[in-house]
């Protein structure tokens, strides 16, 4: 199934967690490197050039955020955060610093494998020529012609709705924080006006989802932000 073996770095201080994460990754045909501290993690990240980093935010020797910022200055390797469910603020900070996704503890192996697969797939695709055509459900979006159709019927979107849609589509699977979306689409003065974002995501769901109350593509990460899923 796998053409090239993906290289994954786990930075986690708890031995038993490393153990089952490693087992799950090896099941996905990944080659696994382990680190127990931030310092060790940075060294490994530089040496083994991983395709994915799994990072526990609660490490004993310091702040995982610092590692992400440091890493982002020289690498765009995807980072998956492991964090407790209640710490939304911590997750937001990590995502804003450049992390790509998060898993709330405790998580099961199936969930972990699904996330890892999705992230590796995305990374593999970044090299390819991006297609201007995105299709999900009954919707098809032609980014080159700014055309959105639903079952071949054109759907009218306002300029802001279209900008929000293309921002979400540009990074499928990735969690985009409220702050970053507000900043990119409405501008820095709207960073605290989260109701704009929420109302416009609602519009997109009304126009593009089968059941807006139970969306399948424009997903809410409560307290954190949004994720577009193909």
């Amino acid at each position: 199934m796998s053409k090239t073996v993906a290289n994954v770095l786990i930075i986690e201080d708890e031995k038993q967690i490393r153990r089952f994460v490693r087992a799950a990754l090896e099941e996905e045909n990944c080659q696994v490197t382990e680190a127990q501290t931030i310092a060790q993690g940075l060294i490994e990240a530089g040496q083994s050039k991983p395709d994915l980093i799994i990072l526990d935010l609660g490490l004993p020797d310091g702040d995982g955020l610092a590692l992400i910022r440091d890493l982002r200055s020289w690498s765009d390797v995807p980072v998956l955060i492991l964090s407790a469910r209640t710490q939304e603020i911590e997750k937001i900070a990590a995502l804003d610093a450049g992390a790509d996704d998060y898993l709330s503890k405790p998580f099961n192996v199936g969930e972990l494998r699904a996330r890892v697969r999705a992230m590796l797939r995305r990374r593999a695709r970044t090299g390819e020529q991006a297609s201007p055509l995105v299709e999900f459900g009954a919707i098809s979006v032609d980014l080159s012609r700014r055309l959105v159709t639903r079952q071949s019927q054109p759907v009218h979107l306002t300029p802001l709705e279209y900008r929000l849609l293309s921002a979400l589509l540009s990074q499928p699977g990735k969690v985009l924080t409220q702050r970053s979306l507000l900043h990119n689409i409405w501008g820095p003065t709207y960073i605290d006006s989260s109701h704009y974002l929420r109302v416009y995501v609602g519009h997109l769901r009304q126009k593009l989802e089968d059941d807006p109350a139970q969306p399948k593509h424009f997903l809410t990460e409560t307290g954190v932000g949004y994720r577009f899923q193909l």
């Binding site: 967690i17 503890k105 099961n108």
Partner: peptide
């Protein structure tokens, strides 16, 4: 409390 629980869930899974 969460750290050992996470390990338990994951290890049972694996």
């Amino acid at each position: 409390l969460r750290t050992p629980l996470t390990a338990m869930v994951g290890l049972a899974d694996s």
